Simulated assay, not measured.
Amino acid sequence: MKKTLAIGWVSADVFSTFGDQLYKFALPWVILADTKSKWDLSLVSATQQAAILIFGMVIGVLVDRPKRLQLMIGAVSAEAVGVAILSYLHVVGALVGVYAIIFLIATLGQIYKSGVSSVLPLVVQDGQLEQANGMIQTARTATQFLGPIVAGWLILRSNHAPFLIDATTFLVLAGAMAVMQRPIAIHLPRPTAKRSLWQETLDGVQYLRSDAILLQFAVIMALVNLGLTGALAMVVYPIQRDFHLHSMAGGVIVAVASFGSMLGSMATAGVVKRIGTMKALVGSLFVVGLGIVGMAAPAMTSFFAGYALTLAGAALFNVAILSLQQRRTPAALRGRVTSTSLVMARFTAPIGALLTGVIGAAYGVESALFVNAGIVLITAVAAAWNIRHFVSTEEEVAAR
Rank of each mutant, 00 (worst) to 15 (best):
M295C: 11
G260Y: 01
A349R: 10
A296F: 04
I321Q: 12
A106G: 07
L95W: 14
L5K: 14
A269Q: 15
F163Q: 06
L156A: 07
H244Q: 15
I105E: 07
V271M: 11
V44A: 09
G60H: 04
F303G: 04
L214W: 05
S339Q: 09
T301M: 11
R241C: 01
A384V: 00
N225L: 13
D40K: 14
K67I: 01
K279S: 10
V371D: 04
V236D: 14
A314H: 12
L355N: 05
L122M: 13
G115S: 07
V224H: 06
S265V: 06
F18Q: 12
V235N: 12
I101K: 02
L215Q: 05
R68G: 01
N386H: 03
L53P: 06
V179G: 06
Q131N: 12
L232N: 08
V150A: 11
P350V: 00
V236E: 14
V205P: 08
F390W: 03
A139N: 09
S196H: 03
I292Q: 11
P298Y: 01
M177G: 03
I111A: 11
R400Q: 12
G127L: 00
S258D: 07
G82R: 06
V172L: 14
P28C: 05
P350Q: 00
V319W: 07
P121H: 05
Q48D: 00
V319F: 03
L245A: 06
F15C: 10
S339Y: 02
A6G: 09
A312W: 01
T107V: 13
H244S: 15
I351V: 13
I7Q: 12
T47Q: 06
F103Y: 08
S16G: 10
Q137V: 00
S392L: 10
G276Q: 08
S210P: 03
W29G: 09
P191R: 03
R336A: 02
P330W: 00
G82T: 08
K2W: 04
V219S: 01
W198Q: 15
I220T: 09
A50R: 08
F317S: 11
A331E: 12
V123D: 10
I136Y: 00
V343S: 10
F217Q: 08
R346M: 13
E200M: 06
L71A: 04
G60V: 02
N372H: 04
A185M: 07
F25L: 15
D34R: 15
E396G: 08
A384C: 04
A161F: 00
I321K: 10
V293S: 12
V288Y: 02
M221W: 01
T169W: 07
S16N: 14
S37G: 12
R274P: 05
L27M: 11
Q240A: 11
M248K: 12
S339E: 05
L154H: 07
L32F: 02
V337A: 01
